[in-house]
Amino acid sequence: MQPVNPQLTRRRFIKGVIASGAVAGTTSLWYAANGQSRPAGAVERMIRLNVNGQDRTVDVAPQETLASTLRYKLGLTGTKLGCNRGECGACTVLVDDVPTYGCSVLTHSMKDGRIETVEGLEAPDGTLHPVQQGFVDALGPQCGYCTPGQVMAAVGLLRANPNPTRQEARMGMAGNICRCGSYDSYLDGVMRAAEIG
């Protein structure tokens, strides 16, 4: 079976990672990726990011990942780090509507992108996004640590395919791990979101 949205495939993600050279697959790289200090001789740059519809100017180290910038520079801690090496999907955000592992892309490569995090979904009056409401209705989350990533993956899926079958939803969400095993309830939530969206 083909994935619902070819943009969402793990292969595309891996290719993107290779292109960016940003896989933080070892401990030492992990700390470098957190952008906490600048390598000798490197030049840090103030760059402008479009996050949740707002332009944010932020000081970003050359090797810094998007997840680190969001969490530690912009205070958007809804984006979680479960593995920090492109395996679990807890850090999933949308870049130009495409679910993207925030731990595995360089922030500098995001300058022209439209970034959306879980914090940007709720309406100003507090109304939850249909995916968030669907997850509440279905009690999708258990421990909740993977939930922001699951939410963003579902939002990306439904933008590409507003009325997926359950099987299509299963394929579209396959890049996100839930150790609590709440897949069934998350899928209930995605289908509910498609109904109310």
């Binding site: 939850l128 995916v131 968030q132 009690l139 939930t147 922001p148």
Partner: peptide, 28 residues
């Protein structure tokens, strides 16, 4: 069924886990 009070925090990312906290002067 009922809506547990922490569910909204989980779907919005507002609920905080240990690593989400910070403190002035924090070292690592």
């Amino acid at each position: 069924d009922f809506v547990p009070p922490d569910v909204t925090g989980k779907v919005t990312g507002r609920i905080k886990y240990a690593e989400d906290y910070t403190r002035e002067g924090m070292v690592y």
